[in-house]
Design a protein around this nucleic acid. Sequence first.
DNA 1: AGTGCGATTGACT
DNA 2: GTCAATCGCACTA
Length: 208
Amino acid sequence: MPATSSDAAPTGPRRLRRSELPRDARELASYLVGKTLVHETAQGRTSGRIVETEAYVVGDAAGHAFVGETARNRSLFLERGHAYVYFSYGVHWCFNVSAETAHVGAGVLVRALEPLEGIELMRARRGTDRLVDLARGPGRLAAAMGIDRRLDGVDLCRDGPLWLGTSQRPVGRIGRSVRIGITKEAQRLLRFYERGSVFVSGSAVMRR
DNA sequence: AGTGCGATTGACT
DNA sequence: GTCAATCGCACTA
């Protein structure tokens, strides 16, 4: 068991209310850096500090919502604060937070976490020991947190196993860059990350 | 019904 | 640095 279980830490994160979340995808992406992501399962509880996000804004050709609402992307059209989980490259799951109001498609991809709780469980799920690699990158993050299709569409702001929590310590300076791995709208500065964090994905220059 | 490719990762030269 | 893995989706016809 990790030393940071909830009974040892009287002041754990508090679940964020929907009213606290900025509606705008870009503002939400920046806001989420430093916040906590928590998943409670029968296997145990895992949590991490969000250190990297990307905004996929309204009308964004790089966003999954661009083609209009479909069976796959319907969660992006839910009111802000819902999970959109999609299957990437036939291999990995990726976790997003829906943004904007209902029926408007936009969201924030959560790309990397600094592991906080349940680190041994994360290691078991990921099959690696390296702390910095447990949730560095969206596919790894979902694997470490045990996030898959079952969580697509869940409300992160109501009682449930997956939720967003308050920041556990002050947020460092937030850097901004182009988004990773896209070809459309590639010049837009819609990636946000905690500067200097070793838990941010990409090359070293992307962490500065 | 068939096709092309993607908001990735890990293994390999 | 390059590249295969592996699937579902959106699009064409």
